[in-house]
């Protein structure tokens, strides 16, 4: 059974709040780069960059960081084809905000941190997620969270974005299906 957790308007509100929080947390002189983790994190990153640009009145550097080649569970899953990474310019000395749809075990973020290290040395890395569903397996936390969602480990949390799924929404379903 699917239960709706966030509606389209609630997602829009959460992203707007996160955009403000990101700006509050950095110095105006800092060089900000928003990097989404494919697939849905990239679309959320694009929206956040747009919101920040509207607030600040100037364009933001935005891109995507694929982490497939850095996963620690490659041997346990069927092979996946990596997506393209697009990191605009150098990340040295900048503030990188990683964006993903759901924060769960923390392993994706760990892989993203490893991938970032191969691109350079940012001044700081921050993490923004639309949903934090708990059950961390690594000491990782998000700096900006759209919604904290207590969930059972067997449940599935699905984030839908209109760029891929034709609609915005967050749903939770029991793992049975």
């Amino acid at each position: 059974m699917n239960r709706s957790i966030l509606s389209e308007e609630e997602i829009a509100r959460s992203l707007k709040r996160i955009a403000h929080e990101i700006l509050e947390s950095v110095d105006p002189a800092d060089d900000l780069i928003i990097l989404g983790i494919p697939t849905r994190g990239s679309h959320l990153a694009n929206r956040l960059a747009k919101l920040i640009a509207e607030i600040e009145g100037k364009n933001q550097r935005v891109g995507q960081l694929d982490i497939t080649l850095y996963r620690d569970d490659l041997a346990n899953h069927p092979t996946r084809t990596p997506e393209q990474s697009e990191v605009p310019g150098s990340i040295d000395g900048s503030i990188v905000v990683l964006v993903d749809d759901v924060l769960f075990s923390g392993r994706t973020v760990r892989a993203a941190l490893d991938a970032l290290r191969d691109y350079g040395r940012p001044k700081a890395v921050k993490l923004a997620v639309l949903v934090d569903r708990g059950h961390r397996e690594l000491p990782i936390r998000a700096d900006f969270v759209g919604k904290n969602l207590p969930s059972a480990k067997t449940e599935r949390v699905n984030v839908l974005v209109r760029e891929v799924d034709d609609q915005d929404g967050v749903q939770i379903s029991d793992g049975a299906e």
């Binding site: 080649l69 850095y70 084809t81 393209q84 990474s85 191969d118 691109y119």
Partner: peptide, 22 residues
């Protein structure tokens, strides 16, 4: 699929740190 994967691999080869842990 292999050609698309190669595209991402080629992209990693233009970075300063070219080694992947995969």
């Amino acid at each position: 699929e292999i050609l698309d994967t190669s595209l991402e691999m080629l992209q990693t080869q233009s970075r300063e740190q070219r080694k992947l842990p995969t």
